[in-house]
Amino acid sequence: MAVSGAILFLYVVAHMVGNLKAFAGAGALDDYGVFLREFLSPVLGYGGFLWVVRVVLLLAVVLHMVAAVQLARRARKARPVSYAHRPKVQGSYAARTMRWGGVIIALFVVYHLLDLTAGVLNPNGVEGAIHANVVADFQRWYVVLAYTLAVVALGFHLRHGLFSALRSLGVASARRAAAVRGTALGVAVVITVGFLVVPFGVLFGIVR
């Protein structure tokens, strides 16, 4: 769980940073897309690097889901009789929404791939015209809303995910506990905001 999650996390960070190219003028994002496809192309061919990334991501997503399903099933088996009276658990909101949060993010990724990678759900949907596709998307408030919900869900997922992964990997000893808690929250907020500035930048006409 922690290891597959870490791979996905690294991707999310790289993706968030890459998206910020949208602020560098109309051509920057498109050039960046070309760069990603040309990267290592002497060895992998045009777009080869992207396919390597896709395979690794898909593997990580599958492992991540399998681990989540196993944990959920073990949890159900470990408590066959549930409590008659059970108020909302007391722990953090992020921790208690991990399973449903994960499902929401997965559904979003499907929509997102159809939107900005395949282009079929994109109002512009021209391959390679990444910047134009993004701008066309976020003119619409409901697309911005969908992306916002997903990115906020991702933020919660990352908050608990990072916190938990660091503990699973044994990093968060008593001495570093407060630092780990703070880091998890800080990173989650930065990623959430970093993703959201692009849709809102378009909506408010800063990115055009």
């Binding site: 007391q90 921790a95 938990s164 699973s168």
Partner: peptide, 15 residues
């Protein structure tokens, strides 16, 4: 023993 796996929800520490 058939216990569930830890996902660090932190409910334990609270009680």
């Amino acid at each position: 023993l058939g216990f569930g796996g830890c996902t660090q929800t932190g409910e334990c520490t609270l009680v």
